[in-house]
Design a protein around this nucleic acid. Sequence first.
DNA 1: CTGTCCTTCAACCATGTGGTTGAATATAAG
DNA 2: CTTATATTCAACCACATGGTTGAAGGACAG
Lengths: 118, 118
Amino acid sequence: MVEGQTHSLDAVFHALSDPTRRQMLRSLAGGERSISELATPFRMTFAGASKHVKALETAGLVRRRVEGRLHLCRLEAAPLAAADEWLRYYTRFWSDRLDALDHALRSADAAHVKRRKR
Amino acid sequence: MVEGQTHSLDAVFHALSDPTRRQMLRSLAGGERSISELATPFRMTFAGASKHVKALETAGLVRRRVEGRLHLCRLEAAPLAAADEWLRYYTRFWSDRLDALDHALRSADAAHVKRRKR
DNA sequence: CTGTCCTTCAACCATGTGGTTGAATATAAG
DNA sequence: CTTATATTCAACCACATGGTTGAAGGACAG
């Protein structure tokens, strides 16, 4: 279903628009990670990295479970799947359209009907 | 492969994170649109909508061609495909995890069998 | 209890964002 | 020419964002 929640798509795409967060997701693809494990690769402050994790969490891309003094994060698939579905719908549609345009351009190459001049 | 151009992914995902822009893309899926055609459905100013179009353009999602006093926009598939590739990589990975979760839920609940496409 | 580790919180700052307005450009039409 | 249309531009505003710092709160070790 492409319709999805507009609201959640906002959050998901916004979360994905940051390279730090995307890299965190890549790390999380290797399994559960603590906040400090997620933060270490970056040159920013711990608190700064923690904010990024929180952004991923509120976007629904990450689930957190507290174990002692560690906060262990793991990936959540559903919102990503929704975003992917959205994208897939359009990429498929647009590639069809590009094909059609390609054909049109090929067949009507020399026929420039528009009379615009300059 | 999946890493690709970090920079462009930033712009594409950010462009997609706004519902106004996503709706514009939906409109553009129906074919070429002028700026005013894209702007009409929204309650915001013309200049405001024009800014959104520009955002889509700089993200590479839209190509513009000026014909007289009209600026005609059309979709550009490539950056979308890149974003989709990124997402697909992770969703595939995460769907494996979902499968594991699914199995766990099924063994616990033993009632609901999901219909999965893969 | 004391201290150390992992983490969040609150305050703050610089910059970016979405949005407005008002003017400016360029093209078309009368 | 004058006027209307289609669009951008520049300036500005309120607000969110990414980042910092300096605390503070639990959990564990000694």
